[in-house]
Amino acid sequence: MNLSMTPQPIHLVDQYDDGDHSRHYTFQLAQPTSEQIQPGQFFTLTLAGFGEAAFTYLTAPDEQGRFQALIRRAGVLTSQLFKTETGTLLGYRGPFGSGLWPIEEIKEKRVLLIAGGIGLPPLATAIEALLANGSDVGLIYGSRDYAGQVLKQERERWQQQMPMIETFDQAVGDQLSGTPLDHLDAINQQLGGEVEAVLTCGPEVMMQAVGRSFTDRWQSTDNIWLALERRMHCGIGLCGHCYLGSSYVCTDGPVYRWREFLKQQKVM
């Protein structure tokens, strides 16, 4: 983990629109590092004078230091990023986080990924790792509406490689409607058996519903993981903003086992 509060230079090398207010970015580190990025880790971007914000890797940096991220426009910094031209020099810090997607632990299991809206990109590194392992894996992706979906190209590719259900809050025509949890039976059928591990990322209310639902189903809190979003100003466990109980999401997370998440929620 890089403990410096000073960013490294990084260039914005490619960008294209990918969903409502969302864009698919490629960045290139000015000085590629040999540090391996683990599924679940995140980085920060600095825009000159507009501050710093945390994002998840969509792909790990390659030998040239190129990596991708999917970013939705939400605040001052991302609004500025959307106005930023390809080629611009930005600041980068990372990778951060030691709470990771538990690829080793679950790769032999039947794994379900449940994503909500902009919660899909943080699952991408886990999906790729599991697919690369040849794991039995399926995805349910819930969005507000068609325009709210992100990672179009990635989903088209995943569609070929694993069972995938897309559902919408505001479904039209023959689109599936309802929450991801409404489609568990369908995904189980497509996977050919009851799932044995769940990874989820999305709005916190959705993730909590997923956690509760599988706890009831399995009478266990073991095989459920979620990735949290928190306001962060350092990424290294110092600024204090991202506390969850006695832990810090930036260093202990961003991925928590559901059991640990519940424990941290209750410690106070």
Binding site: A48, G49, G51, H233, C234, L238, C239, G240
Partner: peptide
């Protein structure tokens, strides 16, 4: 020990 970070543009060059 909690802190926040904030940026201030400096005089001169536009993005310093």
């Amino acid at each position: 020990s909690c802190f926040t970070t904030f940026d201030t543009k400096t005089e001169g060059e536009s993005n310093t």
